[in-house]
Simulated scan of single mutants.
Amino acid sequence: MRAAVVREHRGPFVVEELLDPRPGPGEVLIDVAACGVCHTDLHARDGAVAFPVPAVFGHEVSGVVAEVGAGVTHVGVGDRVVGAFIMPCGDCAMCGRGQEELCDRFFSHNRLNGTLYDGRTRLFTPAGEPVAMYSMGGLAQRAVIPALGVGRLPAGVPLADCAILGCAFLTAHGALVHVGDLRPGATLAVFGAGGVGLAVIALARALGAGRVVAVDLAPDKLEAARRAGADEVVDASRADPVAEVRRLTDGGTDLALEVIGNPVTFRQATEVVRDGGRCVVVGIAPSGVTAEVEMTRLVRRKIQVMGSFGGRPRHDLPVLGELVAAGRLVPGDLISRRFSLDEVDEAYGSLARGESLGRTLVELTPAG
């Protein structure tokens, strides 16, 4: 099969031939229809987040099940599925507690070593060289995914577009529902109108949020936020975002989400929530970056500051699929550009230069 391989940190995505992967017990093989282009891939590619190379990145995919390993019963060959970037093992302590977004084996095996849960990658060159997998290594014609990390899609939903359910919308659902405890009519501020920020806005709307305010520095991203469902936008290059959000929401929001991973916007997000409000931090910063919070306000106003990483695939993917089937979520509205596998280096270059609005998608043709 063909796959985009990165052989050195900060190096290009180069399409190579790899051996067809095979699923082990509890795993599925999919023919990849599409893979979303996410900034987290760049953090790992560039070494800001430790990850081995050579590697295949890409961690939000959709496709068709081509083969299932022993013990897999909830999906079968021919099913249209979405694959989550978090691939729970189902057996560790965190999965047992229902917090599969913190799966011990996912972090210790995949995020540290680029393998699946037997300690081995499923990707090899024709010469036998192992290639690390970032999640399932979705920038390839075929991908192996632990079965608990895939969800069947309802009939009639667009297969390629639904790839972004596996990271952007999964992350949004985790932040809004599992951590943010979003209630109907709640007011929100969203700091950052990139791919995940737009997913947060669109999903909040689908789940019945009240007034939604988007904050960014880029006018084109703020316009995209309006299209995604934001009631108000704040250009942080032209106005004090804390004062503006407070003004637009009569003193503060019920919930603020920081989806950039920046110390400045982290503090701003903590300062726009009302007394007793909740600030959810989603953005990934380079390792070692710290941020400040005003301690007295945190205590006196009973502000909750909480981190959120991804979502819970077994629960969230079916919910998201049904929202798409019902027309309440339209993932294609967030996709601004589409690339082929041969154009993948251009896709990530555009993302790195800040040229991408919302999500961009790499669409793949099945291996022959």
Rank of each mutant, 00 (worst) to 15 (best):
M1K: 07
R2E: 12
R2M: 13
A3V: 04
A4D: 00
V5T: 10
V15H: 00
L19T: 15
G26A: 09
V28E: 03
D31W: 12
H39S: 02
D41C: 08
G58Y: 13
V64T: 00
A66Q: 09
E67V: 06
R80A: 15
I86E: 00
P88L: 12
C89W: 14
G90T: 14
D104R: 14
R105T: 14
R122H: 15
E129R: 06
P130W: 02
A132R: 07
A132S: 15
S135R: 06
A140N: 00
V150C: 00
L153N: 04
L165Q: 07
F169S: 11
V179T: 10
V200K: 01
R211G: 10
R211K: 15
A224W: 03
A230M: 03
V234N: 04
D235W: 15
A236V: 11
S237W: 04
A239I: 14
D240L: 05
R246Y: 03
D250H: 08
G251K: 03
A256Q: 14
P263N: 13
R267Y: 09
G276R: 04
A285M: 04
E294H: 15
M295V: 13
V305F: 09
G310S: 04
P313S: 05
H315M: 10
R328A: 05
L329T: 00
F339Y: 09
F339S: 03
S340M: 11
L341C: 06
G354W: 03
L361F: 01
E363P: 07
